[in-house]
Design a protein around this nucleic acid. Sequence first.
RNA 1: GUGGGUGUAGCUCAGCCUGGAUAGAGCACCUGGUUGUGGCCCAGGAGGUCGCCGGUUCAAGUCCGGUCAUCCACCCCA
Length: 419
Amino acid sequence: MKYKIIRGFHDILPGQIERWHFIENTARQVFESYGFNELRIPVLESTDIYCTGIGDTTDIVEKEMYSFDDRDGSSLTLRPEGTAGVVRSFIENSFYKKTPVSKFYYMGPMFRHERPQKGRYRGFNQIGCEYFGSQSAAADAEIILMLWYFFQKIGFTDSVKIEINSIGDEESRENYKTALVNYLTPLKEGLCDQCNRKLGTNPLRILDCKNESCREITVNAPKITDYLSEASGVHFNKLIQILDDLSVPYNVNDKIVRGLDYYTETVFEFTTDKLGSQNAIAAGGRYNNLVEKMGGPPTPATGFALGLERIVLLHEQLSDKEFKFPTDVYIAWIGEDTFIPAMKIATELRNNGKSVYIEHESKSIKSQLKRANKLDAGYTLIIGEEELKSGRIIVRNMKKSSEESIGIEDTGSLLSYIN
RNA sequence: GUGGGUGUAGCUCAGCCUGGAUAGAGCACCUGGUUGUGGCCCAGGAGGUCGCCGGUUCAAGUCCGGUCAUCCACCCCA
């Protein structure tokens, strides 16, 4: 084969796309019902928005970005995530001047040069929401609630768990980092090489290391929740209170620290145990400093992104619901003279919103009916020389195997019969 | 980036261990049984550089090496 799709990328084929449409449409409908509007941002941005946005020392920026030089020498990057671009657009379009709060959702492809695996691709799709302008824990609660309802709506109720944590404001985090480093430094012999490196760069992420000896050491490490400033503690408690009052099930997990640098206060993940090691299907949190850091006015914000490939994978496991491209009517024609009249009927039906399938090669009636059956068409119209002469076509109900004769130009009767 | 599994028809896979002549099955596709009526059944047909490159051998789908892809785990993340 001469041309092949590049590594880590995938086509979404007819037969699969129907499920994608269902999930995407449900997401749109749910998110819009919560007042989020779609914002479409480009796939390509200048590299530095991701460096400042995501953080220079993160894996994404250090080794996973698809970056290249534009013709004028400036560095561009295929977006590895959506938040940085949305923040750029939020600032550039001065949304903070237009409305007290702004709520956006976006969907589309993201790119990260990782080792491909099930549920992890180099080109993958995310849907995300970003909520700017509210520092209330109620805003955090609402997006978690919204995600929860979304997952219920696509049938994930029993398969998804919510894990939440707080990593506090900057003051809390600095105090905690110091405490954590003080605790870990004497024990660093037992930590893996990577964690030893993280000790100097990003000690928080030692907490989610899966290495056994690291885990044993971190079990008794100081907990972030004990180091929250008063304001951060109040914020987190309020979030928990709201989730309790609204009966949203969750689990506080002090090991969730997130890999992107912009998070503050609330962080959360929606996880499943049905996808192997790719267990996070949605994740997010609050990022109160990012807008300012990227050159906008100080603006609190909260949001999340969900991974569509993983959700589709899980949905395939959970739902035996068939997703099939529908064919309402199949038109079988026999003899060259019948093609144009058949096409006229097809056009009429299509203009009335019907999905109509018609052959363009002359074929036996038998093979045409077989095709209609394969397409699962509700009705087959049959028009041959006899029908042309008599001016009445055959309308076959494929489920009941019954037939009706209807005038060739009587579209009204035809439509009411097949509806 | 590290370790392991897999790669044979459009799809799912058997054959590989223990090398041997035209490489198989099911599903899907086409034709016919029914001269103008689908599904079930029956008969027939078409479809394969056995991922790719090299090596061993009289002989390689089968053994060996490399490479690419994919899957699983690590890592990271959605």
